[in-house]
């Protein structure tokens, strides 16, 4: 009797335990959004860099969650294979030439895999590999677009103001310098631009004086007359300077064209944001201007430090000092 109840109790205990376990398993499988009852299919993609994508992250197609990341594994240097477990019913929307990239959703920036469905007729099959767009490329693109977008917006506002004044016929450079709220980037560029122009003018003048003096023959350095190599250097320098002046003018023209374009369009901001070609142009213009002015400054510096011309500049400085004293 005792043994009998004991055996019964053991059986009852075992059944209870199994029941509890089954209940828990069922609960957790159901918790995974019904994956237990929905068939899934698996596709994979090979990325260069997954930027912290991990197992269990979501897979989106056209902004709809269609599955999860099943496995992330490095297979070779710079090659990460990502297995995606997708809901079975969704595969008809994904074509053979679909591609995937790693993006992020929301404020906190959880990583997700975004599938672009592709456009050929053949639909994707189980265990296919889809093309991966490396997230570094896309993410950088996004970042650049964003940056350009924000920069452009602030610049545009400023430029609008400027263009309004321009229409009134005021001088562009003076206006730009006088006006406060111009975006830093642009202002710096313009400032450098002005400096460059001034410098260019001065150097040209200086060089001209020098040459005249030499040609007149009352120069302090007779040696110069005979040394053709030196003359060549000076000529080259002057050449550079004139080239830079040209650049500078071109930049001004570009800016002017830009402003004109903005004035002609009703919604300048929208245009700038959507027309990436224009945005690109704007960016390249700014870069151009910047690099040009930097180059110019470098040249000026080089010119001033040229040991042959050093004396000339020093003398000029003294003369100026004297003049100042005389006054």
């Amino acid at each position: 009797m005792e043994n009998n109840t004991r055996n019964q109790d053991i059986k009852l205990g075992a059944f209870t335990l199994i029941g509890i376990l089954l209940f828990l398993i069922a609960l957790f499988y159901l918790g995974r959004e019904g994956n237990l009852f929905n068939k899934t299919f698996t596709v994979s993609a090979v990325f260069k860099n997954v930027e912290g994508l991990k197992e269990g992250d979501n897979v989106w197609l056209s902004g709809v969650k269609i599955g999860t990341v099943k496995k992330v594994q490095i297979v070779a240097e710079g090659q990460v294979i990502v297995n995606l477990s997708l809901k079975d019913k969704q595969n008809q929307f994904i074509k053979k030439n679909a591609n995937a990239y790693v993006g992020s959703d929301g404020l906190v920036g959880n990583k997700i895999v975004v599938i672009r469905p592709g456009n050929v007729r053949a639909i994707i099959q189980e265990n296919d590999t889809i093309n991966a767009v490396s997230p570094t490329d896309t993410q950088e693109l996004f970042n650049i677009a964003k940056e350009v977008g924000t920069n452009t917006r602030s610049i545009t506002d400023d430029l609008k103001l400027i263009s309004a004044r321009l229409n009134k016929g005021e001088g562009i450079v003076g206006e730009l310098l006088r006006d406060g709220p111009i975006s830093k980037d642009l202002r710096q560029t313009i400032a450098s631009l002005k400096l460059a122009t001034e410098n260019t003018a001065r150097v040209t003048e200086d060089a001209h004086t020098l040459l005249t003096k030499i040609n007149k023959g009352n120069g302090l350095i007779p040696k110069l007359m005979t040394d053709t190599a030196y003359v060549k250097t000076v000529e080259q320098t002057l050449d550079n300077v004139s080239k830079l002046s040209m650049n500078t003018r071109k930049m001004s023209d570009d800016l002017q064209a830009m402003v004109a374009k903005m004035n002609s369009s009703e919604n300048a901001v929208g245009l700038l944001l959507t027309d990436s070609a224009f945005a690109h142009q704007l960016k390249s213009t700014l870069t151009h201007a910047k690099s040009a002015s930097i180059k110019l400054d470098d040249n000026m510096e080089a010119l001033q430090h040229n040991f042959l011309l050093r004396g000339f500049f020093r003398k000029k400085k003294k003369e100026e000092a004297k003049k100042a004293k005389g006054k």
């Binding site: 004991r6 019964q8 109790d9 053991i10 059986k11 009852l12 205990g13 075992a14 209870t16």
Partner: peptide, 10 residues
């Protein structure tokens, strides 16, 4: 252990 579980169940 199983008997204990059975006890709890009962």
């Amino acid at each position: 252990t199983l008997i204990g579980i059975a006890d709890v169940y009962k």
